[in-house]
Write a protein that binds this DNA or RNA. Structure first.
Lengths: 203, 203, 203, 203
DNA sequence: AATGAATGAGCTTTCATTCAT
DNA sequence: TATGAATGAAAGCTCATTCAT
């Protein structure tokens, strides 16, 4: 069946692209994982590049959609940012494969990478909106919203990635979902309050 | 002479690895840029991998060294963190090439990437120390220092990278050094105070 | 219906084999042009090769038949040769597609090409007969009939082909049928009289 | 050595392109014949196409040069045409490989084939010049020189090719050089005198 | 120290052909 | 009859690496 085959390929591709990079991923391996012939991949996707892009777009759409939904469910910018953070961390954690690709396949100069950055800018824009909303609500301080949103995105992404590798390299065997709250808490604390001790805070 | 040739190769390699990734960089192109024969590279470096690792280690050492020196020049954890931030942003900005590699060549599963992550952990450890110092000084609030340091590293790195690409894609033509202060300021504001408006802040 | 589908495939195949060669023609493209599924072609023809051979045989039969009929309509070898020439040139011109295949797909070592050459020999044999007839009528000089027939075939074929490409490459926009008489005339003049000026001719 | 390797590749390529067509020729086979690794071919030629074009240009240059020299050695247009014919037939005969490529790889629509046709036009132009010369000397009749030259080229080329295949398919075992004179004679007779018997000639 | 011609494993992509429906 | 998804054997090309000079 058509859809079924494509799904198998997709799933296999995520795996393979995950533990290799785009360049080192081999179509042969993807085909093997998917349990189809190599030609079958090419019957459905014009090229390795197209397959990869389809994959990333799919992931970016999912995560964007997920974030929007979670944000919509919250009242007030402060809670929305909290939701966004948690949603983002949770999603990346559960799709570690995608998380790796997100940060590693985006900082290059191919056309594809250019497009990915545009996608990421959409993600950042969502955070930016929340920040703007909070600023106008008076609950967030005046700030450079674009830069701040980017920094938030960076802080969250790298935190998750570091944790993923930490576990992978045998550093931690706590259940993944148990680890999420503490990571989100650390990020929240940093992003909401900063590092300064409150008794030293005056402005 | 020996040293000279090696330097040429190094300089060329930085350039080439910069606009390609490790995988897409070609020894031929590096040789061309360096103005030496391909064989010459292999006379000095055992492999592409070794050349790349040498390069990255060099960069990591420089940046680590640079950070330590700048931190040492400041009094008090608050200022030290400020210095660290500025030093890191400045270095990455001026070595955009290295900045790209830093984030893109690190999230993989090759031995090399494993080693790079260890290097990055050193960098993070520096920040961590400052945070610990601040905490014990009472100037920073109690916190999960490792996670916070990672988040700080992520926020700063991605902010710089996003800015580099923004410029590269024609988005901004301000002088690079003029842009640094405002980026550092945004990061500082975020990391010191968080996003919360002070009138809403109560602990 | 059956016949209809086959005709569509045939027509499409002529087109596609025309602007590509046998090797570069793709079954996919033929199917697309024909408006049928690729499998349908294989339902009617065992292979690409078989389709191509059927096509060429069809063309060779048509041209052979056409030549014979035109020759039969003329009295005397001189007029017969004239008719043959005109018929051949006209046919090739009107089936430029076939003309290209005729000369380009024949000089190889595949079984198929071997068979085509046999077919061409039939065509040459027709000319040869006319020459023999003319010789015995005394209207043609004694000659090496086989070689001469081949030369006549070559002269006519290449002349037409060269003209087809000349037009195709934008060299001439006269109506095709207007150009035929002058080409036939030039060929006739060459083949009947040769290049020698009559005042220099003395046997 | 550089030149030596290239020569080996060239020689092998002629052979392989000869008994296959351009499309069916395999780089692996060429490499095998040449006794070098496949990569070596690509070290010297950017692509299969480039190798092939280099080959054909080489052949076309040789034959053009050969023709010009032989023509220059003759006095009067009549003898020049005779020389040209013999030179052309001889060359093709001795380079049957090239002869096949000449006629079979030229009637297509790739860029490469376009270029080859331009080359052939140069060859035809040489014949044309001789015809023009003869016409102005009064030794050749007035004629459509371009068309006639093309026809001469076609007659000679196809004649040789047909003979080459005839032998190859076991049709004749006379020494190649012994066969040339009779072929040239037949062509000469046709092109100089045409087919008409002299007693019927009154034009 | 330096060179660059030569290598060949490895990779992506193509496409005629098959076959279950 | 007709379909089109699936196949897998090729084949062109790349490029890190080697090594004789």
């Amino acid at each position: 069946m058509g859809r079924e085959t494509i799904d198998q390929i997709f799933a296999a591709a995520v795996d393979v692209f995950a533990h290799s990079s785009f360049e080192r991923a081999k179509m042969d391996e993807i085909a093997g994982y998917a349990g189809v012939a190599k030609g079958t991949i090419y019957y459905h996707f014009k090229s390795k590049e197209e397959l990869f892009v389809a994959l990333m777009n799919d992931g970016m759409e999912q995560i964007t959609e997920f974030l929007r939904r979670r944000i919509a469910s919250a009242e007030g910018a402060a809670d929305q940012l909290r939701e966004a953070l948690e949603a983002y961390v949770t999603y990346l954690f559960r799709n570690g494969t995608f998380a790796k690709l997100l940060l590693s396949e985006v900082w290059g100069s191919t056309q594809r990478q250019h497009v990915f950055r545009a996608r990421i800018r959409e993600l950042v824009a969502i955070i930016e909106e929340v920040l703007a909303q909070g600023e106008s609500e008076g609950v967030f301080r005046p700030m450079d919203k674009r830069e701040t949103a980017v920094a938030v995105f960076g802080a969250a992404s790298v935190t998750v990635l570091q944790e993923i590798f930490h576990r992978q390299e045998g550093g931690d065997d706590m259940e993944i979902d148990e680890r999420i709250p503490s990571l989100v808490a650390a990020l929240e604390a940093l992003l909401y309050r900063g590092v300064i001790s409150s008794r030293n805070f005056n402005g």
